[in-house]
Design a protein around this nucleic acid. Structure first.
Lengths: 228, 228
DNA sequence: ACCTGAACACCGTTCAAGT
DNA sequence: ACCTGAACACCGTTCAAGT
């Protein structure tokens, strides 16, 4: 028995510990940097030991999804549908900011298995329940769920985000070429970021923008609900 | 010179041919099944031959993004901002239906390099230009771009889609357990799909739902534009 | 019965050897 | 100078050998 062996084996390996280590690894480093071998190394365990608790990597990713979806606050009780949905969505957003890899993993899983994980299904179910309790017809709830989940351009608002992780683009255009080739992007970026540290993205309050978009959708839904 | 060599070398290898082969491979099989070695095999070429035309796999993915974004129709000229934006977004959607891997690749690239590819930047620029020409203030265009790109729940509307590619979930719950555990999802699914082939998703007109969500956003933007 | 090291079939990419 | 096979450092997972 070599020194340190006791410390390493103090906490026995479990599915929960494996998932926590995997989520932590994905949080800093992205899901691309996640490997069974690295998870095992982080836990001080041989790679094959993981396979006692998770069937394979896909099943591990499913477990990670359920773990982070479980972090979303439960719906507020005794409030109107609009603040209830609003609070739920903003809580989901906070979770996604902690685990930016989650949307991609959820979507990939959806495309592969064409069904969400139980936790995601539970989240959707409770969201539908809020709309129903708020007096929405089934038809309008259906529309609402599509609206809440739609991503109109297929890529998200992080497009303009100045993510601190990535290193600056090595072949970025000089500002004057940028302005000549993309005049509207440049004009908008200049207007948004008076403190012109970076041409694109700096000085944009993403939380405010997110809530602005959310409220636009909620107000639109409220109008439809009243008309129906 | 063995038979077939002439046929294989008739078309010389080029960046465009490589990108076309890569896009075709990703279209059926997903981006996970895409590998330098498979692209080379599809072109009847040794893997290392690709590296004369693309620097590495990341740069190849960038090229694939620009290729498919180039498929989006140019903006209609001489029309009001609303039909112009509407047409552009619906054209983008058609492209994304042909290349369902594109959003994930665009997002991954954004997260890694924190800057969109030139073609994506060009698309955004022209979209901003449409709003500006329609009389939107810079501030409102900024909001509008966030609204168009936002994905409120972090996962897309394909959540409920009955994608034909994936095989049926092996550990799907029987309908009665489904109804007990996810009552609202089940109620909604039953209402939407009267032809109850599959419990979730069948009979939902995604194109209609997409346009419904799009129009809700466009109408909301129009109201804001008039108020400003 | 349980655990695990070696092995297999992949992957992107480097690099030196061959022409 | 150009091309390319072998090799390197990874990966998820199988499987048989060891305890």
């Amino acid at each position: 028995m070599q020194p340190g062996a006791a410390a390493r084996t103090r906490k026995p390996l479990s599915r929960k510990r494996i998932l926590a280590a995997a989520v932590a690894l994905a949080d800093d480093g992205g899901v691309a940097a996640l490997s069974m071998r690295k998870i095992a190394a982080a836990l001080g365990v041989v790679p094959m030991a993981l396979y006692k608790h998770v069937a394979n990597k896909d099943e591990l990713l499913d477990g990670m999804i359920d773990a982070v979806v479980g972090e979303i606050d439960p719906p507020a009780a005794g409030v109107d549908w609009k603040p209830a949905v609003r609070g739920r969505v903003l809580s989901a957003r906070r979770m996604l900011l902690r685990h930016p890899w989650a949307p991609g993993v959820i979507e990939a899983r959806m495309k592969a298995r064409s069904a969400p994980t139980p936790a995601v299904l539970g989240y959707l179910d409770s969201m539908i329940g809020i709309f129903r309790a708020g007096g929405f017809t089934l038809d309008l709830v259906h529309h609402a769920m599509h609206i809440m989940g739609s991503r109109v351009l297929g890529f998200s608002q992080e497009l303009f985000e100045d993510s601190p992780g990535g290193e600056p683009d090595p072949d970025a255009l000089p500002p004057e070429q940028m302005a000549a080739r993309y005049p509207h992007v440049t004009e908008l970026a200049m207007a948004v970021a008076h403190d012109a540290e970076s041409v694109v993205g700096a000085g944009c309050d993403d939380q405010l923008e997110f809530e602005f978009a959310l409220d636009l959708m909620l107000d639109g839904l409220e109008r439809l609900r009243r008309a129906s």
